[in-house]
Nucleic acid binder design. Structure first.
Lengths: 196, 196
DNA sequence: GCCACAAGTGTTAGTCACTAACATCTGTTG
DNA sequence: CAACAGATGTTAGTGACTAACACTTGTGGC
């Protein structure tokens, strides 16, 4: 059941994406987005706390955190995080990622939006630490999460803009292999040697 | 020779730091900072492009980039970056870091400022890639830089607020060991085993 | 000392993101 | 249909940031 609020929210996101693509993030005002969605600017701010959030909305933290937590412990934190992220690759390659790609492509052009993406990353980092860090190893896990997520963000930016037709999954595989060279040795055959 | 502009800039930074500590980043207006420094708000914006920048000013990118570039190539990108950052530890432990610590402690409390720190990190990342990436390996280097810098940022936030009396250098050593476990084996004896 | 000249700063008048308070409308439930 | 809650609108702000133009202060040549 789609509530009225959900429909409004979706219209705002869609209108914002279109307008940002046409005229650039900076040049579009919240008023204009709201008008294009047929609502007032107050309604916009009831659905999104900031202009930035209408573009950079990311509800995947719990999924990512669970994937990391599912990795066997006992191995170094950075390997657990890397393997957890790799385990999500099949999911990535089947999702309807087109609107996400458009959003990231817009963010890639505006430095202020990359700061916003970093805020997303920080939230994901916290989720991973809470879900997957053994007691007493929170710092290690936070460092490992920060490192791996930064690497994923780096390839996300490429993927969104580059003409390169590589799948997001393959790029994430490369990123994890770069961060944890040991992964390419044997553990994840599907991605071994994928890095150039 | 200290120019008038440099003096004004320093007064603005100092006044901002004091006011932010007393009343919090959000609650202090640019007008108030400017007034405390004896100038108008327009002068503030001539010295700093945004309110955020008066706190998060970071001129160390060239030093960091050079330190990474100085590492021998042929090893994985992530090891070069990690070793480059480690080579700066002696410098860290002798610098007058007190105002930096105060600034980071303020930033640690405000999510919006952590986004600003991420913008700093992105700039550092670009500087490292430009200075140290062999032709054709830019992506690998960018991923490695993003990962290591994220790890350093994570410990910086701890260092600024925690009562822990560990030196910044020791914390950075731990961070690099977490990201590149291989470093603890032999290469950098001073930090081997420093991680808990 | 005086006179360009430029760098630094001030004033004023805006735009736009974002907030608070209160009114209105719409859909649902008894 | 009445009552109620969720969703939206209106209005009136605050504060970050910009543009245009005037002014002031320090510096070098005469």
């Amino acid at each position: 059941m789609t509530t009225r609020a959900e429909a409004t929210r979706a219209r705002l996101q869609s209108a914002a994406l279109d307008l940002f693509e046409q005229r650039g993030y900076r040049a579009v005002t919240v008023e204009e987005i709201a008008a294009a969605a047929g609502v007032s600017h107050m309604t916009f701010f009831r659905h999104f706390p900031t202009k930035e959030r209408v573009l950079l909305d990311d509800p995947f933290d719990p999924v990512i955190a669970a994937a990391v937590a599912a990795q066997p412990d006992g191995t170094p934190a950075i390997e657990r995080v890397a393997r957890g992220l790799l385990s999500l690759v099949p999911l990535l390659d089947q999702e309807p990622t087109e609107s996400a790609r458009r959003a990231i492509a817009i963010a890639a052009r505006e430095p202020e939006l990359q700061a916003g993406m970093a805020a997303n990353t920080a939230a994901t980092e916290r989720a991973i630490v809470e879900a997957a860090a053994p007691a007493g190893e929170e710092t290690e896990m936070r460092i490992a999460a920060a490192a791996c997520l930064a690497a994923v963000t780096a390839v996300l930016l490429d993927w969104s803009t580059d003409g390169s037709r590589r799948t997001l999954g393959a790029l994430v595989g490369d990123a994890m292999t770069t961060v944890v060279p040991a992964l390419s040795d044997a553990a994840v055959p599907a991605y071994a040697g994928a890095a150039s």
